[in-house]
Each structure stands twice: as structure tokens, then as C-alpha cells.
Write a protein that binds this DNA or RNA. Sequence first.
DNA 1: CGGACAGTTAGGCCCCGACCGAAGTAACCC
DNA 2: GGGTTACTTCGGTCGGGGCCTAACTGTCCG
Lengths: 225, 225
Amino acid sequence: MSAEGEELAGWARMLADGTRATVCLALLDGRAWTATELAKLAKVSRPTISEHLNLLVAGGLLTEVRQGRHRYMKLAGPETAELIEGLAALAPRRTEVANSLSAVSKRDAFARARTCYDHLAGRLGVALADAMTERGLIDWSDGIALTPEGQAWLEDLGVQVEVRRGRPAVRSCLDVTERRPHIAGAVGAALCSHALHHGWVTHISGGRALKVNGAVQAFGLSSGV
Amino acid sequence: MSAEGEELAGWARMLADGTRATVCLALLDGRAWTATELAKLAKVSRPTISEHLNLLVAGGLLTEVRQGRHRYMKLAGPETAELIEGLAALAPRRTEVANSLSAVSKRDAFARARTCYDHLAGRLGVALADAMTERGLIDWSDGIALTPEGQAWLEDLGVQVEVRRGRPAVRSCLDVTERRPHIAGAVGAALCSHALHHGWVTHISGGRALKVNGAVQAFGLSSGV
DNA sequence: CGGACAGTTAGGCCCCGACCGAAGTAACCC
DNA sequence: GGGTTACTTCGGTCGGGGCCTAACTGTCCG
């Protein structure tokens, strides 16, 4: 087997275990989880989860912050989050029949609006990206970039974009449910936190799903979300 | 572990083995390889490769055509190819120090121009995508699409685009070396075969790397390839 | 037909890695 | 201090899977 092959395989192995994949998927909500929470979620013992977390940190997918007796785990960064989200979108889904009433409504809420790491996703996220494109706020001609109009629009809304070295202002991220791009990067994060802060969207029961309050109007989207 | 986690993991497991990863990477050249060729490449016995190929076919990544005593293996389709190419681009590369003269020149040729499954990649592929965008031949506003001008340009060049149900005319594909998109899809394939047919590019020593003859002029690209 | 070649099946080896319980360390709190 | 909680380390079990050799099926060709 070739060196490149071994490299690709080594990376894929990180996600080739159900427990690790579950952990990564859970961390897509952008929050920091403790080891015990993850153990409970993945239904394995604490020693076992500890080992997996060590692996994922060594593999560069996760970072940890130790505070007292707690070990808080997060995805290493937006790129990692987008990579995992992208992979989950690409992997063909065969199962998914769950048809209980609560499961269906959960799934619907998830597809309508949710967070993807630190930005908006689901139909809401994609609609926002579409609207911004249509109004010339985003320029896709060379990769993806914010236009001067886009800059002005953000200022008008009062959105504070936190500029950080090494993080692109705007990035596209493949949406898991819509299979079309939504807006990530610093701007995506700023829009999401702005919307949360103003109550335009609110988290439903601690998961990634969002309740859409005034976001459609506030962002001036057409109705179909 | 969750159902989704198990699903993602099951898929990742396909590429989590060095031998299988090597096979998939090799098949990125878009050609059909026989089982024995792949066994030799991956440095395993024929029974071993046979088992791996069965797995990959069952997993939907590869398809096979049996002719007489030969078993020809191909990637299942352009989507699969783009998925693997994308993954390889995203996976962080740590190694890669090989500095012998021949290795360096090989790598340079590969980065300059190559095929990616059935379309053009490397600096040439990315430059072509850039030029087409700049001239308004491609519209990125809603995903990616060919403009009427783009249609006309292809006709002027005499490029025959083979329309096939289910395959988008134009798709973007993340370039492994450039980390920026190049043109895939039916149009990408047509441009590549057109260029090969007219000798604008030619394959170097049986690999994926291409020698650039008249392609820069023929496509009207600026010099920097 | 008989030999060469492509690929598969069968059987067995062996290692890796996922998992657990028990014991150890370290922080927090009364 | 002593009890509780969070996490890690250690030692060990167990199953899966990647690999091989040897023997078999099937195809091509002289």
C-alpha cells in the first residue's frame, strides 16, 4: 500500500469507529462537552471514552480544555466541523425510517433550522445564503467573498464580525439536510450569534435544532423556510 | 453510540484501511484496473485484494465489469471520485518530504497539470476554472451553472458535451494540490477529453500527470500555469 | 487436450483495538 | 479531614479483520 493511501486511511480511521463518530457528530453543536457526558451519550464506560478522546485529540480533530477535574472537549476548529458535516452529508444514508410522531417532528425541526458548529444551517441557513447571493452581498466568482454591499449590510444590521487571523471571513459549508451550501466562517458565526442574541432564533431543548422566531423577517427572507 | 454515528463510521471504515485507500486513490485516474494490477500496486496477494474489492463494491464505492477471466474495477461514478479527491484534499498531510530529484520533478508535474477522474486538475484545471468564471462562462450564484455565453464558447471550441441523465453538466471539485475548485461534471469531462484528443495535453508515463502542450494558448489562459 | 493465466474459496494465523472492572489520582465541598 | 465526583491508568478479555498459502474454478490459447 502507498504512503498516501496509508495517510488517507489513518485519517479515515478516526471516524471509522461508531463511538468516535458519535462523539464528533455530537460536538457539531459547537459546545464543549465533558468526557462523562460523551460517555453517557455514546453508551460506553468512562475509561473507554477517555481513550477515544485521547485518540481524537492526537489526531487533531478535537481540542481539550482542562478545568479543575473536568475535561471539556471541542472540535478543533471550524474547518474540522465543516469537514465532518460535509462527510456526513456525502455518506449515503440508507437507514432513517424512524416514524414515531416525536421523531418526525424532531427531524422536521432539525431540517428547518439548526446550528452547524457556530453558524446557521438547515433550510434557514441555505435560504439566508441564497438571499445574500441574490442581493449581491456575496461574490462567488473566486471562491467566495463578501462584497462591499455585503459589508454595508452587516453594518446596517449591527452585526459585529469578529476578525481572527487565519479564519476566512466567509466560507461555504455543505448543508447535511439540504445538500446545498450555507454560510460559515467568521461572518456565518457572527450572523448566528447575532440572531441568537436578538431572539430571532432560539435553541429547542438543548439540541442543535432552532425555533425560528423573527429570523425570516429580520433577515428579509422569502417565506419558504 | 448513535445510529447516525454508526452509519458515518461504517462508511468511513471503507477508507480506513491502507490497502483500500490505496486502491481508491489509484482509481482516481478514471481508468479501469484489473484485480491483479491493484494487488501488485498495493503489495498484497491476489486473494487479499479480491476480498477488499468485494467490500468496496458492496459499499458502493466501486463497480466492476467482468470480461472473460478479467475483473475490471472502476470508481462507481463521478460523485464517488470527487468525494475521495475531496477527502484526500482535506486530510491534513504531515509526511511528504521525499526530496530526490526524480520525486520532486514528478510532484511538480503532478501539481502543474493532471487528470482527476475524467476532468482536468492541478494548476491548469484551477486556472481554467478561474478564466471561465472571469469571462462569465460560469455562474456561481446558485450552486454552479454554465451561462449561455459558456454554452456558446464550448460550441465555438467544438467541444461535444455528452449529456447523461443524472449527471450535472458542470460541478465544482476541490483540487488536492491547489485546495481551490476546478471544473468537473459532464463539461469538465468533455473539456478534458477534447484537450487530450487535440494533443493540448498528453499523459506522462502512464500516470495521472499531464504534459501541457498547447492547452494554455488553446484555452486562452494567462501564463501562470 | 493441456498448460498458462486470472481470480476465488477455504482455512488458519495473528495482531489490533474496543471494551470493561478495579484501583489510582486529583479536584471540589462540607 | 473525609466523602464525593471526574477522570486516568492498568491489566486483561474478546472479536474482528487483514493477511497468507494452498487448492480450486474458470477462461484463453496453441
